[in-house]
Design a protein around this nucleic acid. Sequence first.
DNA 1: ATTCGTGCAAATGCTTTGCAGCCGT
DNA 2: ACGGCTGCAAAGCATTTGCACGAAT
Lengths: 129, 129
Amino acid sequence: MQQIRKSRQRDAILQDLRARTDHPTAMELYLSVRKTIPNLSLGTLYRNLNGLCESGQIIRLSVGGEEHFDACTKRHWHLKCDRCGRFYDLPTPDDTNAVPFPAYEGELRDYSLVFFGVCTHCARTAVEK
Amino acid sequence: MQQIRKSRQRDAILQDLRARTDHPTAMELYLSVRKTIPNLSLGTLYRNLNGLCESGQIIRLSVGGEEHFDACTKRHWHLKCDRCGRFYDLPTPDDTNAVPFPAYEGELRDYSLVFFGVCTHCARTAVEK
DNA sequence: ATTCGTGCAAATGCTTTGCAGCCGT
DNA sequence: ACGGCTGCAAAGCATTTGCACGAAT
C-alpha cells in the first residue's frame, strides 16, 4: 500500500482549480499554476490530475474530445457554450431523480449531463454572424 | 460553396456504422470497414467521420477521453459500462423535457446524457472481484 | 476538364513514462 | 534512510494534414 505525501505542486494545482469558477483544460490550468510555480512540469500536472481524479478530489469532464477539470465533486449539470466553448455550472436540482433513471436490466449508478447552448455572457454580446 | 461527391469509402463507413448496435471508436470502425475496403486509410476514415458529424449524419460521443460514434442521430441516452467500457443505448422518453431544462439566462439548445453503471451483459456474468 | 476524395506518410498535439535527483516523513 | 514526487526529455498514441494521384460530375 502506497502512502501519499504532501507536495507543494499538488496543493497549488488543487488550490488553483478550487479558486476557479470555470472548468479549465489541463493546459489552461498549467499556465495558471505556473504563475505560482514557474517550473512546474506538464508531466507533474498530468500525474497529479490523474491522481486527484482517482482519489475523487476532482472531476474530469470529457466533451467533444476535450478534457476539462472541476474541483466541485458534487453531482451537478454543465453547459458547454457553442460560441466561446467554455463550461459553466448550471442550477442543478438537489433531487437525485431530477433525471428519471430509465428502467434497465443492469445497474445505473450515476450520470453526466451536459447541455449545449449559449452562455449568459455570449448571449449578452449577441453577435449575429 | 463546396459540393460533396459520392465516395465508396464514405458510403461504406456510414453503412457499417448503421449496421452496428454498439458505438465503436474510430479504430474499431476502421478495422471493421477494412474488411470491405482493405486499403482504406485512417486519414480518410477520420476525414469522413468529421464530415459526417458536421453534416449531422452521425453523432460523436465523448466520454472519459474516448471518442465513440453513433449513426442514430435522434436524441437518446447512453450507458457507459464500468466493467466492459462499452456504450449502450438506453430506453429514452420521447418527451423532450424528460430532463428538466434548468432556468438559465442564456440558451439551452440540447443536451447529452450518459449514465454510468453496469450493462446487462456484465451484470449477468456477475464477477465479484 | 475540373476539383473533390483518397492513400500514404509526415506532422501535430495531448498525455504518459523512464530516469536521476529532490523532498517529505 | 526510505520511497514518493518532481523536472526534464523522450516516447506513445490518436488525430490531422500536405501532397500527388485517382475518381466523380
